[in-house]
Computed example of a mutant assay.
Amino acid sequence: MPRFALKIEYDGRPFAGWQAQADQPSVQGTVEAALARLDAGFAAGARIAAAGRTDAGVHATGQVAHADLVRDWDPARLCEALNFHLRPAPIAVLAAARTGDDFHARFSAVQRRYLFRLIARRAPMTHLRGLVWQVRNTLDADAMRQGAAQLIGHHDFTTFRSSICQARSPLKTLDDIAIDEVAIPHGREYRFSLTARSFLHNQVRSIVGTLERVGAGAWPPERVGTALAARDRAACGPVCKPHGLYLTGVGYPEDPFAT
Results as ranks from 00 to 15, higher is better:
R71P: 03
R71L: 06
R71N: 07
D72Y: 03
D72M: 02
D72E: 13
D72T: 14
D72R: 14
W73C: 10
W73V: 07
W73I: 10
D74S: 07
D74G: 00
D74M: 03
D74Q: 06
D74A: 01
D74L: 01
P75V: 12
P75D: 12
P75L: 05
P75C: 10
A76R: 13
A76W: 00
A76V: 09
R77N: 03
R77S: 14
L78F: 05
L78C: 09
L78E: 08
C79T: 15
C79P: 04
C79Y: 01
C79I: 11
E80P: 00
E80D: 08
E80G: 14
E80Y: 15
A81N: 05
A81L: 09
A81Q: 05
A81R: 12
A81I: 05
A81T: 04
L82I: 02
L82R: 09
L82Q: 02
L82D: 08
N83Y: 01
N83T: 05
N83D: 12
F84Y: 15
F84E: 12
F84Q: 14
F84M: 10
F84K: 13
H85E: 10
H85L: 12
L86G: 03
L86W: 00
R87E: 13
R87C: 11
R87D: 15
R87Y: 14
P88E: 06
P88G: 09
P88H: 03
P88Y: 02
P88I: 03
A89P: 02
A89S: 08
A89H: 10
A89C: 02
A89L: 05
A89E: 06
P90E: 04
P90Y: 09
P90K: 06
P90W: 07
I91P: 01
I91S: 02
I91F: 08
A92I: 08
A92W: 09
A92C: 15
A92P: 08
V93P: 09
V93D: 07
V93M: 07
V93K: 03
V93F: 08
V93Y: 07
L94H: 00
L94P: 00
A95D: 04
A95I: 02
A96Q: 04
A96F: 08
A96E: 09
A97F: 13
A97V: 05
A97E: 03
A97T: 03
A97C: 05
R98E: 08
R98M: 01
R98K: 12
R98V: 09
T99M: 03
T99K: 04
T99H: 01
G100I: 08
G100Y: 09
G100H: 10
G100A: 08
G100L: 04
G100N: 13
G100Q: 07
D101L: 11
D102Q: 06
D102G: 15
D102S: 15
D102T: 15
F103S: 12
F103E: 09
F103R: 11
H104R: 10
H104K: 07
H104N: 14
H104D: 15
H104M: 14
H104Y: 07
A105E: 03
A105P: 05
A105Y: 01
R106P: 05
R106A: 15
R106K: 13
R106N: 13
R106L: 09
R106Y: 11
F107P: 01
F107L: 12
F107D: 10
S108Y: 07
S108E: 14
S108K: 01
S108D: 10
A109T: 06
A109D: 10
A109V: 11
A109G: 03
V110S: 05
V110K: 05
Q111W: 01
Q111M: 14
Q111F: 00
R112F: 14
R112Q: 14
R112W: 10
R113M: 04
